[in-house]
Design a protein around this nucleic acid. Structure first.
Length: 643
RNA sequence: GCGGGUGUAGCUCAGUUGGUUAGAGCGCUUCCCUGUCACGGAAGAGGCCGAGGGUUCAAGUCCCUUCACUCGCGCCA
């Protein structure tokens, strides 16, 4: 018999009746009846009930075993009587009648800092410090298994699509753009540092220039930035992808198969089947997204859309000064139609108004449209229209005209005369019983507020679709933007993206009008991926950096390897990178990223289990030529700690 | 760096308007219990109420400072 187990704790069934088996695992739970003791033995695979009574000389000893001890149990598989079977357990038809057992771990004598056999929510500090205990608990244990399965599925799907996985350096050079780098002192080069890669961006492009055609990597990425609920400090993983001789459409086609497939495969993980967008995913130009959704990561589960109605409030016959003043300064008015809310109590509108004030807006103006939609039922007009329709006469325009009958109500309705109202009705597609909310400000701020209002209104109305993953690609990002702080032109996203129109566009067009071949993949309002077709032409690269205000020669200096490669035969190429942690969060429906990472750091970027970061020994610092120069507050802290 | 929330038993939490001896569940200890499966029952141990200062006759409760955790902002090409 095997030293530890003949079966796992999820294997035994009625058919094993009478067999002598050995199972190993943790003491999950005890039910002690005095003369009869049940122990649930738990391993990775499941639970099996072990039973022993006072007839057995081992009873007294076995009874004393504490929870979470690791034991092996040898015994006979016994069929439970029908009334004692447990339908909730896969192994619930049988139990193991103990003949012998062995304690395999050092005996657990300390009080457990957290209990494994409950799903009670525990404080993160305890969970992270005793992560190995926490990870034994069912929910997070399953999440980590999901993570493994998802990563495997990604690898399999990528390989099926003809990709190969490559490793790229972890110790590399600091990148001039982007987030703060993690630095590693170079012992052999006093005063110099390696940096951990924020992403393998240049390496994957260089692999394309090395002729490998299709690259992917489950790539660790390191960025020294502060944490969020959906962002770990320090490190995270991407499904990093790059392909040669491709257009944007080729990248989309591959990733829709891979990511769509992964989501479909695991969409039932929580027990609620989620629907997944079918390829091809909707494509939304950046400008359209900013207008219709108020951000560049539209949540398509929300049916509301934003419409520009500046033209309505700019009319001479509209007297609403609050908006007119802003329009005169170059501002815009954005509108959100909320269907069928006219019967909502006043508090519905007041709540949204005070919400907007909390967002820093003067308020959230609105107009409610009431009255009869179209033709009055049972009227002579209706009979006439029906008769015309029955004879094949087109009556749409007649019905359309009836919309004029809608009455406008609400605080700002009186400033909008009938004709302007009609224009508003046309623009927004208003029907009887709808309300229209307004956000008025300069373009960027109005879009932002309208976007938040769109979400808020839909939440209040409870009309956001549930149980689905709605994907889209946001495309045509601007290549450049004005940097708020400096007021100068800067790259708006990735300097490696090919500007649409190439070098010619850079030379002839207004930089702020140039679009990049740059795209994001968005699901349910979360950015899952960013990518682009790369700029592989050295001249275009230099020109782009020149426009962004870099001195001549900056490209050679910052990206020497890449620049050389560009000049020595670079294929057109592009790709993207999906955030793996976030994908798993979505599939597991976990609001916190630490629930899908086995050993995460806390918000202060500390590993409470390993005690990282920690101080270094003087000889270690000497080796790497580092002298510590602490800020005053930290000095005090260390002195205090030292006693 | 800034703002919000939280901090009470090993763990998860309750604790009213400031009022006399700070509670519950789980876990732990001892005992009873031979068909439970979140077993049940009896008794018990366990507290610097995060720390420091203040107000008050009286502070877990109010005020200030500080620390820790957490959420958000900044940051994240």
């Amino acid at each position: 018999m095997h030293a530890y187990r003949t079966h796992t704790c999820n294997q035994l069934r009625a058919e094993h009746k009478g067999e002598t088996v050995r199972i190993s695992g943790w003491v999950h739970r005890k039910r002690d009846h005095g003369g009869l003791l049940f122990v649930d033995l738990r391993d990775h695979y499941g639970l099996t009930q072990v039973v022993i009574n006072t007839d057995n000389p081992l009873f007294a000893q076995f009874e004393k075993l504490k929870l979470e001890n690791v034991i092996s149990v040898t015994g006979e598989v016994v069929l439970r009587t029908p009334e004692t079977q447990n339908a909730k357990l896969p192994t619930g038809q049988v139990e193991v009648r103990l003949k012998a057992y062995e304690l395999l771990s050092a005996p657990v004598t300390d009080m457990l800092p957290l209990q494994v056999n409950t799903d009670e929510p525990y404080g993160e500090e305890v969970r992270l410090k005793y992560r190995f205990l926490d990870l034994r608990r069912e929910v997070i244990h399953r999440n980590i298994v999901l993570r493994s399965d998802v990563v495997y599925s990604m690898r399999r799907r990528m390989v099926e699509q003809g990709f190969r996985e490559f490793q790229t350096p972890i110790l590399t050079a600091s990148s001039p753009e982007g987030a703060r780098d993690f630095l590693v002192p170079a012992r052999l080069h006093p005063g110099k540092f390696y940096a951990l890669p924020q992403a393998p961006q240049q390496f994957k492009q260089l692999l394309m220039m090395s002729g490998f055609d299709r690259y992917f990597q489950i790539a660790p990425c390191f960025r020294d930035e502060d944490a969020r609920a959906d962002r770990t400090p320090g490190e995270f993983y991407q499904l990093d992808v790059e392909m040669s001789f491709v257009t944007q459409d080729d990248v989309f086609a591959v990733m829709e198969q891979v990511i769509g497939g992964v989501f479909e495969e695991f969409s039932n993980f929580t027990g609620t089947k989620f629907s997944v967008s079918k390829p091809p995913f909707v494509r939304i130009p950046y400008d359209e997204s900013m207008l219709k959704y108020g951000n560049d990561k539209p949540d398509l589960r929300n049916p509301l859309v934003i419409v520009d109605v500046t033209s309505v409030f700019g009319r001479d016959d509209v007297e609403f000064k609050a908006f007119k003043g802003v329009i005169a300064k170059g501002g815009v008015v954005r509108a959100i139609r909320a269907p069928k809310v006219s019967d909502r109590p006043r508090s519905f509108f007041d709540k949204l108004n005070s919400w907007a004030q909390g967002e820093g807006a003067p308020g959230l103006g609105y107009v409610v449209f009431e009255g009869k939609q179209g033709v009055e039922a049972g009227s002579v007009r209706e009979a006439a229209i029906n008769a015309m329709e029955a004879h094949g006469v087109k009556v749409d325009h007649v019905k359309q005209a009836e919309r004029k009958w809608l009455d406008a109500k609400g605080p700002i309705a009186k400033f909008i005369p009938a004709e302007a109202l009609q224009a508003l009705i046309e623009l927004c597609g208003v029907q009887a019983g709808d309300a229209v909310f307004f956000a008025c400000d300069m373009v960027d701020k109005a879009a932002l507020l309208a976007g938040k209002a769109r979400t808020k209104i839909a939440e209040e109305m409870d009309i956001i679709e549930k149980d689905c993953f709605k994907f889209c690609w946001v495309v045509d990002y601007p290549m450049f933007e004005i940097n708020d702080k400096t007021g100068k032109v800067d790259f708006s996203h990735n300097p490696f993206s090919m500007p649409q129109g190439g070098l010619k566009a850079l030379e002839t067009q207004d930089p702020l009008k140039i679009k990049a071949t740059q795209y994001d993949c968005v699901a349910n309002g979360l950015e899952l991926c960013s990518g682009g077709i790369r700029n592989h032409m050295p001249e275009a690269m230099e020109k782009a950096f020149e426009i962004a205000g870099y001195p001549k020669g900056a490209v050679q200096e910052k990206f020497g390897g890449m620049y050389n490669a560009f000049k020595l035969g670079a294929p057109p190429h592009g790709g993207c990178a999906f955030g793996i942690d976030r994908i798993i969060m979505m599939l597991a429906k976990e609001p916190n990223i630490r629930e899908v990472i086995a050993f995460p750091m806390n918000q202060q970027a500390e590993d409470l289990m390993m005690s990282a970061p920690s101080t270094a020994e003087p000889h270690q610092l000497r080796d790497v030529h580092i002298k510590i120069d602490l800020p005053k507050a930290a000095v005090k802290e260390q002195v205090k700690a030292a006693g």
